[in-house]
Design a protein around this nucleic acid. Structure first.
Lengths: 216, 216
DNA sequence: TTTTTTAGTGAACAGGTGTTGACAAAAAAT
DNA sequence: ATTTTTTGTCAACACCTGTTCACTAAAAAA
């Protein structure tokens, strides 16, 4: 054979470059800057490839961003589904859900940080994608609530409002948790306890709620 | 008359350049990108001065950012103070406060957008400054609440938790409002109504709340 | 008035940016 | 074994970035 398999290994990389790019971007978001201010060259450098290799996998940075967003939400949705079906509507249902959720946040810190930063800092396209996803969660929660006997007499608007209230708070608490150092177990525990209390208070409010007739 | 205000004006600018720079940056944040991805040259261009003029007023971009942040919170604090002293603790106190607050948000859209984007997208310095400010609001609210007869039997921790709940939601609703078009009066009205309902529900919860003995 | 301080300009730098095009090795298809 | 497709490299481009320096008009101080 005329040519030997060159030993200097100029291009032995496999199809894993795409994932390397995504991992590099996520990494930079976590420890450096919001996604919108990452440069293509920066990402490729960290991924260990030459800048032009980027175009073999994504047309531009914003495409990478959307892919990352998709990845983040796919795993999140799958967790939510599991939380919901593991649920035995018992006494400490709330505590269990809260714990499961926040454990998941801790285990997927990078993805949550990415989403949190893009929620306001990102491009309109990205912001809309995220908001749509959150709205979906709110709707699902409202439907779940409607299945409980002591809740199903509420109008769907009221249920929607209550679900939004819960989601708003969980979102805020998630952001609070993300601001803590990764190893600050005490702080994280505190957030968890606060979350449980706040949600319990909300549900107390729900039990007292009386839908008011149409107001302007 | 020595000289009339020359019309060719090579350098007749007054001390208003500093403000022009701040206004330019704020403007760019509103209609283009998060502050962290603005360039110094971009800002000076919009302000109508040459890049190097920037250094006559700020050492770098991050200093401009902090000044902008300061400005945002100064006016916000002043409004909060006014809301609190205008308050006659009556029936529709809640509604009044909510309306005043959201009107203020509408009138200071740019500043709120700036803060919202920096809350997660900004540098650590900026994020900390914002969080400190929010924590301060929460504390003040907790103290205000402590003055009400039907609330002053709660532990300060419980009050803090309740105040945090309120602040979390108002923050989330503010962000929701900021996502709407500036002229979407209907949408804004909807957010306002939702805000009022959610807060009313929270206060219902508060009236039912019983501080649980120390749990782990 | 004269002097000093403030606040603008313009040219130039070293370096980072996205994107192109031509090329070649490896992997897959034939 | 041969061809084709995929996936990497390298060189080059035109542009934008932050920052420096020397220069000067205007405003303030003397």
């Amino acid at each position: 054979m005329t040519k030997e398999t060159s030993s200097k290994t100029r291009k032995p990389k496999r199809g894993q470059t795409r994932e390397a790019l995504m991992a590099a971007a996520l990494d930079l978001v976590v420890k450096k800057a919001p996604f919108s201010s990452l440069s293509l060259r920066e990402v490729t450098k960290r991924a260990g490839v030459v800048p032009t290799a980027f175009y073999r996998h994504f047309p531009d940075m914003s495409a990478l961003g959307l892919t990352l967003l998709d990845e983040s939400f796919r795993t999140l949705r799958q967790m939510m589904r599991q939380v919901r079906q593991d649920q035995v509507p018992g006494e400490n249902m709330l505590r269990g859900s809260v714990e499961t959720y926040f454990n998941y946040v801790r285990e997927n810190r990078a993805h949550f940080l990415f989403v949190a930063k893009e929620l306001f800092g990102g491009t309109p396209t990205m912001r809309n994608a995220i908001r749509r996803e959150i709205r979906m969660f709110t709707n699902e929660l409202a439907m779940d609530m409607a299945r409980f006997p002591f809740l199903n007499h509420f109008s769907s608007e009221d249920l929607q409002m209550m679900a939004a209230l819960v989601v708003n708070n969980v979102t805020a608490l998630t952001q609070e948790m993300l601001e803590l150092e990764e190893n600050d177990e005490f702080g994280q525990q505190q957030v968890l306890v606060a979350a449980e209390k706040q949600l319990r208070l909300v549900f107390l409010g729900v039990t007292q709620w009386k839908s008011s007739p149409v107001t302007t």
